[in-house]
Nucleic acid binder design. Structure first.
Lengths: 377, 377
DNA sequence: CGCCTTAATGAATCCTAAA
DNA sequence: GTTTAGGATTCATTAAGGC
């Protein structure tokens, strides 16, 4: 059980080892401003949305808002919340790697303002995810629908960042081989998982279930990634990150939360590397050129290739192209041309004859890849 | 079958009989400005989503996705979209009765801006409702979660309006005697319900299902109420209003939509009063994904799975896949692979050890389903 | 007519490494 | 920064066509 370090005052330009897997005490904007730019892979944020933010609310003109003053009107309070949101989101964006992504969770009270600010700051929305609660609090007055969900926004740092982490294949495999949808079903955090205070009451009003964070991290991070939570609270982000072999950084203002989160995370046992291994994505598999099948002797020049229904046939040539009559080109281009399509995956389109039946040439590529295993790229 | 009147130029200060159950041609702000203030009970609005699509998108079979690229969905910037939204929402608010409510539907492209504008204008948000689609379009490139829902915002005119219509008891009775949640499950609009153009293609790119509108009206209107739709389109709001014994007003710019909506509504037969009560929600059998067993703590990463005769063993990984050596995949794919089969039901094939005997993992699925009782899948 | 196979399609911000 | 080319990617439902 390794203790969790706490940082009361982060030094300017700190080394990574100083802040990794720590909880930083303080205001989230001030702490974020001390962290190096482009240093975290994913941010998970559960910002407050009640307007009593302990005097931290400032109007856009920097005048301070008294959060319990009934006199300021609705517009003032929304503007103050927007300014607060803009401030921490801007600071968070500086810290995020160019291909990093951010998750923000909220309810209808604040999520629309959060989403608007995100778009205005240049974040590029990837999905909005609905957390459907199996056991939500009932509506007691019977004047509205039971508020049975919360909303998460998942966004990349920029419109142009395309290489963000998304473990599509693993998510699909874990979901009975159909792609993961934007609506997730989880129970709210109760029972032994819920941290209690000395009175036996709940320590934190909005502790999120670990299962929710686990799916977030399994979807959008790799083992060893750094996950930052600027509103650390009870430390769910840290606990799940540690269990899943990810690094965390938490920022939190309240001492009681920091203490509880530290103890909680210290008690977490990380999973074995073997259990954390990532399912190999096809698009990440080593590139195999069709010509290399000839080099390896798995395919001979002059072999006839056919599509699965033998509508078309092509001839393999010694230079790694295939030809139909006078037309020659890659397995992909010729496959596309015969079908009159823009594109075609030649590996799955073309087949060769073996023992009387047609087998896709992709099976030969698999043999190539198996042979390459253990050979440095 | 009563014809639907069309109004090309609404007179100033028109009598109610002039505009009730009509379709007004023109820009929605101009038309709204002609209607009397505080004259409609509920507004349902399906504004442009500002989709901001890039190039073409193709399905894996290379067919092209017919995208929403209509002129009315093009905006130069978020600011332009905000201005458009503020204008029509302000005009709509003048027309709404003090105890009236408004529904606005959108996706993550626009709904955050819509919600922000609503709050800024003084609308008081009552719920955000998630329309979960049973049959959404997949994500074809595997780069995001399948976008499987849209969001509706339900709001009253003012924070102070308390006497808005909400048929709590009727909804609860129609929902197996549990209160209606904020997540609703409906199929998208297809089949015979979908209006077609002369070419047999879809008449309108975003026609909403009648079931969705029916629940909206059953929840928030009384028979005889007036429902206004400022983006009338194919006239779903009018068709459902007429069927449910409510009045409608539609505003629409395009002649072809007005004509189709008129014919559609003229063919609607209003329900008998008696039948109005029994609008029932459809429930689906809950589908359980293997990964959700891990989420729920019923299965731990690192657990060994075996077939019933212990010929093969596999290791459960944290991402919800299982692995034998280097090969990882879903319970179904790995089960199929070890047997050399095309397919396999992993739920019945794989077992785990408990108290010395092997139990199928399907028994854990049953526990999940029991826990999920009452929550539509 | 029924049964089985194939095709079509829906509010979509949907690729990426190498040259 | 650009362009080029390899080659990876889909779920539920309706409707039409074949036999």
């Amino acid at each position: 059980m390794s203790a969790v370090r706490r940082i009361d005052e982060l030094a300017p330009e700190p080394k990574k080892a100083e802040w990794l897997d720590t909880i930083i005490k303080g205001d989230c904007v001030a702490a974020l401003d001390r962290l190096p730019e482009k240093s975290v892979d994913v941010i998970f944020a559960d910002p407050p949305y009640n307007l009593q933010l302990g005097g931290d609310l400032h109007r856009p003109d920097q005048s301070r808002v008294d959060a319990v003053d009934d006199e300021w009107d609705q517009f003032d309070s929304f503007a103050a919340y927007d300014a607060f949101t803009r401030a921490w989101m801007l600071a968070a964006r500086r810290v995020l790697k160019p291909n990093g992504t951010i998750w923000v969770i909220g309810s209808y009270h604040n999520i629309f303002r959060v989403g608007t600010v995100m778009q205005d700051l240049g974040y590029w929305l990837l999905n909005d995810i609905v957390w459907r609660k199996t056991n939500p609090m009932p509506n007691f007055r019977g004047r509205r629908f039971q508020n049975a969900h919360e909303t998460m926004i998942w966004a990349s740092r920029d419109k142009s960042s395309k290489s963000y982490t998304f473990n599509y294949e693993a998510l699909k495999a874990s979901n009975d081989d159909v792609q993961m949808r934007s609506d997730w079903l989880f129970p709210i955090c109760t029972g032994k998982e819920r941290l209690k205070n000395e009175d036996g009451g709940k320590l934190h009003p909005t502790q999120k279930p670990e299962a929710l964070l686990a799916r977030v991290m399994m979807a959008s991070t790799k083992p060893g990634d750094v996950v930052l939570d600027p509103f650390f609270g009870s430390g769910t982000t840290g606990a799940v990150a540690k269990r899943l072999g990810r690094h965390f950084v938490g920022i939190e203002r309240q001492d009681d939360y920091i203490e509880a989160a530290s103890a909680r995370i210290a008690g977490v046992e990380p999973l074995e590397d073997m259990d954390l291994a990532q399912m190999q994505a096809k698009r990440a598999a080593p590139r195999v050129a069709f010509g290399s099948l000839l080099d390896a002797g798995l395919m001979q020049p002059g072999t006839q290739l056919h599509d699965s229904k033998r509508r078309w046939s092509a001839n393999v040539r010694a230079d790694g192209t295939i030809a139909i009559g006078n037309e020659a080109g890659s397995i992909h281009r010729i496959g596309a041309r015969v079908q009159g399509l823009e594109a075609c995956n030649g590996w799955t389109f073309w087949h060769f004859e073996e023992e009387g039946s047609l087998k896709p040439i992709d099976s030969l590529r698999q043999i190539m890849r198996d042979n390459m295993q253990g050979v440095a790229a």
